[in-house]
Amino acid sequence: MMSNWTVTRVTWRAPVLAAGLCLLAAVGAMAQDGSAGRPSALASLVIWMPFILKGFGLNLLMSVLAMTFATITGVILGFMQISPIALIRVPAKLVTNLFRNSPWLVILFAIMFLVPFQITLPGGDKVMIPDWVKATFGFALPVMANVSEILRGAVVSIPSGQWESAESLAFTRAQTLRHVILPQCIRRMLPPWMNWYALLTLMTPMAAILGVNEALGNTQAAMEAAGSRPEFLIPFYLFLMTIFFVFIYPLSVYTRRLEKRFAAVS
């Protein structure tokens, strides 16, 4: 009981502490601004907060869509990796290793420039592809490869006796995977899956490099619109760090608790 209470206490105190540091930094920046007739750094931050939070909403949308796509395709790719047919298994391993060992930024640039800006439908209508959609697809590819490897590792970690028991019951390979192996794999896969979602969310600000109006891009645009004064750097960027921290930190704490719980069950 005491250990669970401690984890819960840390979960709530750390984001509050981070928000307090952000506020103190903004107040400090305001104290340094002695120019008359110009809004302080704190006042400017308050004005632009909704704009920055709107960009953060796009970060969350990209992370959810990318993780959904990566999970579905990663599971399919993982099953292909464990296929007994070499013609299926070998290409799946190549794709997995390619995207697992490629820099995210390189993949992002490749997707942004290789995917067309618009597509023409059979009827002749043209549909624009937003940059954030292409960025979402770019972020999904390396996560897809890692989800594939997570599934492969989880299946391999199941003792061979499980396969032999299912075979003795006349289960086919597909039935064994569905009814025996996968239920045991889910609890092994969930903590690393959550870690990869947290990492994916933290990587989404890279989309600002390519002009996507997410939280980082909106923060930079807000500072420029407010006058690009040096005292804006600490409060604006610390606020940006805080909103990501407040979202990600509880996930990381919950992931650690899941790991401990599943380790105890195992």
Rank of each mutant, 00 (worst) to 15 (best):
Q175G: 12
I243V: 14
M189Q: 07
L210V: 15
S252T: 12
E231T: 07
T176S: 15
G227I: 06
T176C: 14
R256G: 08
R173K: 13
L210W: 09
L190D: 02
L200I: 03
A263V: 02
K260G: 00
T201R: 01
W193Q: 00
P191E: 05
I248C: 12
R257V: 08
F236P: 04
G217R: 13
L251Q: 11
F262G: 01
A207N: 15
Q175A: 12
L200F: 03
A174M: 04
V253Y: 01
E224F: 10
P250A: 02
E231G: 03
A207V: 15
S266R: 09
P183C: 10
L216G: 04
M241T: 07
L202R: 13
A221L: 12
A264I: 02
R261H: 11
G227V: 06
V265P: 00
P205E: 13
Y237V: 08
L216N: 03
R261P: 00
R178F: 08
T172E: 10
T172P: 10
L177N: 12
T255G: 00
R173W: 09
L240F: 08
E214I: 09
M241V: 08
E224C: 01
L190Q: 07
A221D: 11
I243N: 01
E224W: 08
P192M: 02
A226Y: 03
L251F: 05
N213A: 15
F245H: 05
L190K: 08
A264T: 06
E214N: 11
I243L: 09
L238C: 06
A215E: 09
L202Y: 07
A221S: 13
F232T: 02
E224M: 11
M206F: 15
G211C: 11
T204I: 15
I209G: 07
W196F: 11
I234G: 02
L199E: 13
R188W: 07
P191W: 06
E214S: 07
F262H: 12
Q220K: 14
I243Q: 09
L233C: 01
I186S: 03
R229C: 04
L216Y: 14
M206K: 12
Y249K: 04
R256V: 00
N195R: 05
L199R: 09
F232I: 04
L190N: 03
S266I: 00
W193I: 00
F262T: 07
N195C: 02
I234H: 05
W193E: 00
R178D: 08
S228E: 10
L251T: 06
E231A: 06
K260N: 05
R257S: 10
A226W: 05
F245S: 04
R256K: 12
M194E: 02
V180S: 13
M223W: 01
Y237W: 11
N195E: 08
L238F: 07
M206C: 14
F245D: 04
Y237N: 10
S228A: 15
L199G: 14
F244C: 01
Y249P: 03
M241C: 13
E224T: 12
T176Q: 15
H179E: 10
P192E: 05
M223V: 02
I234A: 14
L190C: 06
F245R: 04
P192H: 02
T201E: 06
A198I: 14
A221G: 03
S252R: 13
